[in-house]
Computed example of a mutant assay.
Amino acid sequence: MQVREVPWDNADAVELRNGQSRDLSARYDSPVTLNEPAPDGVVSMSVLYIDTDDGELPVGCAALVDVTGAEDVFGAARTVEMRRVYVLPEYRGRGYSHALIDETHRIAVERGFEQIVLVSGTLQPESVGLYRSRGYEELQPYGMYQQFETSLFFVKRIVDDTH
């Protein structure tokens, strides 16, 4: 297993993000957004690869976007938002999401961020459980998803804390 940073438009990253979009669309009965353009402030796009008999297989992804100062709720801390955390359904429950989160935390700390924020939702109980188990705490609603009552918002201080 290896997590590598790749360009936003890397074919493996695009396919994984599209898979996540389809998954969320089915859960929330919302439109599918495919081939999402890179958001402003992208810090990192990571893909998790596992070794198989046929070579490397991309099974998960996660992105970091600099949102420092974008919302009052973030305060003055250098803030990065973790987005597009996704593991293919058939590979869940094997610790790959933990590996992705560990790598995003490492990258965020290495690049001088003080906290990570993220948005999840009530119809993603496995994700919410994962974030809470990793020390994320609830945060006041922010951004475009605050309009949806199914949205949940989290924050984790990461200064001197890579887990």
Rank of each mutant, 00 (worst) to 15 (best):
A11S: 14
N18H: 01
S44Y: 08
D29T: 14
S21I: 03
D12G: 01
V42M: 06
N10H: 11
G41V: 02
D12M: 02
Y28P: 02
P37L: 01
S21Q: 14
S46H: 00
S30C: 13
R17E: 05
Y28F: 12
S46K: 00
R22A: 10
T33A: 05
D23G: 02
R22D: 13
D9P: 03
G41K: 03
R22L: 12
P39M: 09
S46Q: 00
N35C: 04
D40H: 10
D29F: 12
R17K: 14
D23H: 10
S30M: 15
S25Q: 07
G41H: 05
V42C: 05
G19P: 01
D9T: 15
A38G: 08
N10V: 07
E36Y: 04
S46V: 00
P37C: 01
S25P: 07
A38S: 14
A26P: 03
T33C: 04
E36I: 02
D40M: 11
D9W: 14
E36P: 00
T33H: 06
Y28V: 06
N10A: 05
D40E: 11
V43D: 04
V14C: 13
V42E: 01
G19Q: 05
S30D: 09
E36M: 08
V14P: 01
T33I: 07
V43A: 02
P31V: 13
S25T: 06
M45V: 15
E36L: 05
V43P: 09
D29L: 13
S44H: 02
A13T: 03
L34N: 07
A38P: 11
A26Q: 09
S21G: 15
N18K: 02
G19S: 11
Q20G: 12
L34R: 12
D12C: 02
D9E: 15
N35M: 06
D23C: 06
V32E: 13
R22S: 12
Y28L: 14
